[in-house]
């Protein structure tokens, strides 16, 4: 009798999702990726959680249990607070701008224009180039005597000079402009990826909808805001999520631009950079694991919030 319940449920389940054989085949197909995911992703997170509550040596492993000490220290650490502040500022600027630019590029590239393939490739190119190489290039461009300031100097009117930036302004070497410079870099390099996501979604919108709109007399502007933009809602959710996660995981650009301390004056300190420092410059593995867990929670919560905001299934589907 006791076994009848689950057995009946299984029967109902098998009839709903096809035969037992099909279920086995399905699980068989995903077995290897699922196993890798469980071991490498979920397993690592659980292991990091364990490490974070012990005093942990690189070679010796667990030394003694220290409970939540690392978390208490972490949350009261000023540099970590600075890292959270930097990353939050970064995400607030980068995510909307990246999405807007990505959408704009996708719409442009989706239009029937000559050289469509060229533009697609050109806009996507920064995303596939090594971010380390692009960052190094960017550092050269933004030097006080670099290309960027050179172009400013050759312009008849320099709008940035009006904002109080000297002609030889050291963009990455000044605490107030370093993060902004890295934001600009990342908006440029990553918008190509966002374009790709939007483009894939744009092409799923049925032509009939646009035809109907045209028959109703909608102009291009109206078509975009009333048809295209709302129908891209699943893409907005996806792009926003990926973009926020990427922003919260800011590391390489900050590291290459500002060294391991996010110089100048911690202006480029990010959470992952902080984690890297804890593990490989301070050799505090358990503390670094605690940083990783906190970052995981931040990303997890941010994603849940986004899901609540735009993730619900659209009413028309």
């Amino acid at each position: 009798m006791a076994a009848a319940g689950p057995a009946r449920r299984l029967t109902r389940w098998t009839s709903a999702y096809g035969g037992r054989r099909e279920i086995l085949a399905g699980y068989g197909l995903i077995a290897i990726p699922l196993l890798l995911f469980l071991v490498l992703n979920i397993g690592s997170i659980v292991f990091a959680l364990v490490i974070s509550v012990f005093e942990w040596q690189f070679r010796g492993g667990a030394q003694e249990a220290i409970g939540l000490e690392n978390y208490q220290r972490l949350l009261s650490d000023q540099t970590f607070q600075k890292a959270i502040y930097n990353v939050a500022t970064y995400a607030l600027w980068v995510v909307p701008l990246q999405m807007a630019l990505g959408l704009l590029l996708a719409v442009i590239v989706n239009a029937k224009i000559r050289g469509q393939t060229f533009f697609r490739a050109a806009f996507y190119f920064p995303a596939i180039a090594s971010s380390a190489a692009i960052t190094v290039l960017f550092i050269f461009i933004m030097q006080p005597q670099g290309l960027f300031n050179g172009i400013r100097a050759s312009l008849p009117i320099d709008p940035l000079a009006a904002l109080g930036f000297a002609p030889g302004h050291n963009w990455l070497g000044t605490a107030t402009t370093a993060l902004g410079s890295i934001m600009a870099l990342n908006i440029w390099t990553t918008s190509g990826t966002m374009m790709l996501f939007y483009l894939a979604s744009l092409q799923t919108i049925s032509r009939e909808v646009y035809e109907a709109a045209r028959i109703d007399g909608a102009n291009t502007w109206q078509t975009f805001w009333r048809i295209t933009f709302p129908l891209l809602r699943p893409a907005h959710f996806f792009v926003a999520t990926v973009s926020v996660i990427g922003a919260l995981q800011l590391f390489d650009q900050a590291y290459i631009g500002g060294g391991s301390n996010g110089d100048p004056n911690f202006s480029l300190m990010s959470i992952v950079l902080y984690l890297y420092n804890a593990a490989f410059r301070q050799f505090n593995l358990d503390y670094a694991a605690a940083v990783g867990i906190v970052l995981f929670l931040i990303i997890f919560v941010a994603t849940l919030i986004q899901r609540q905001l735009f993730g619900r299934t659209p009413s028309w589907q």
């Binding site: 090594s130 190094v136 550092i139 050291n170 390099t189 990826t193 995981q249 290459i256 060294g259 890297y276």
Partner: peptide
Amino acid sequence: VLAACGGGGTATVAPVATGTPGASGASPTE
């Protein structure tokens, strides 16, 4: 690919591949 690299929207590279900022001479601050 992005998921495999750790789920970032930005093109992340492993820290190992970034090189030492100082050694490359590219870091403006060190």
